[in-house]
């Protein structure tokens, strides 16, 4: 029996979909059976981030409305045998699915998979309610900005009101250089404000854009700091105790060296 985890944020654009793609791929790389569920009906994107957009035949709405069997709609990943995607519908809206249907879908999926990771749409309306309906655990993604942290706080309140106790926090797109000069909130600031446990910190990384361009999650990229951070997060989800990685960039040391040598 698997675990159903919803990845949510309230605010859009903080990296929910990227997080889902990377955590899912990271868990699959560890040998787990994983299914990623895109519940952002009307604005689906998890398929392109995973590089699976050309393989979609059926979607989540087809499944819950009985147009196809669940197995027919699941798209197998290019890289991992045991990683699947259940895409959102693109031509419908959030009302195309009910909370009851979502609960039933999650119950079915967790029979076959170790991890069911749900990509939640931005907002707190129907799409959000559906996305959390069948979840047992929640991950809240935020960035070190006032707007994103405010929305994260609201989402944490709503999750707890819906019996999703103790959501875990991922701080995304942190810039160690800005934190260092006091122009960006640091990890402790956000933990203090939101008062929840930290699951991981992902640094801003150009390789995320590049990997999204290619449709290949950065978690598989050994040279990517963000990818390594996602790998660590995946391991923590499985219960492994992985320390937070050091975010100071090596480029900084190289720069200092060059400066010292006068080149």
């Amino acid at each position: 029996m698997g675990e159903v985890i919803v990845v949510t944020s309230g605010k859009g654009g903080v990296g929910k979909t990227t997080t889902v793609a990377n955590i899912g791929t990271g868990l699959a790389a560890e040998g787990y059976k994983v299914v990623l569920v895109d519940t952002d009906i009307g604005l689906r994107n998890l398929d392109v981030v995973m590089g699976l957009e050309n393989r979609i035949v059926y979607d989540i709405v087809d499944v819950v409305s009985g147009n196809c069997r669940l197995k027919q709609a699941l798209i197998k990943d290019k890289r991992f045998e045991e990683l699947y995607l259940l895409p959102a519908a693109q031509t419908k809206d959030k009302t195309a699915i009910s909370m009851e249907q979502m609960k039933e879908l999650c119950a079915n999926l967790k029979n076959d998979f170790d991890y069911v990771i749900i990509d939640c749409p931005a907002g707190i309306e129907m799409g959000f309610k559906n996305a959390i309906a069948g979840a047992e655990k929640a991950i809240v993604v935020t960035t070190p900005e006032v707007s994103a942290v405010r929305d994260a706080d609201r989402i944490i309140g709503l999750l707890e009101a819906n019996d999703l106790e103790e959501p875990k926090l991922i701080i995304n797109r942190i810039r160690p250089d800005m934190v260092k000069r006091g122009d960006m909130m640091d990890i402790d600031d956000m933990i203090e404000i939101l008062a929840i446990d930290l699951l991981g910190v992902v640094p801003e990384d150009e390789l995320i854009v590049i990997s999204t361009n290619k449709g290949e999650p950065a978690v598989l990229e050994k040279t990517s700091k963000a990818g390594q951070a996602y790998k660590n997060i995946s391991l923590r989800i499985t219960g492994e105790n992985v320390p937070l990685m050091h975010l100071e960039s090596h480029a900084g040391i190289m720069k200092k060296l060059r400066k010292l040598l006068g080149v």
Partner: peptide
């Protein structure tokens, strides 16, 4: 004095939350 905008962010967040 060097001014950190992080402090403004925290204070504004504290009030808005």
């Amino acid at each position: 004095k060097s001014f950190s905008s992080k402090k403004i962010a925290k204070e504004r967040l504290r009030l808005v939350l």
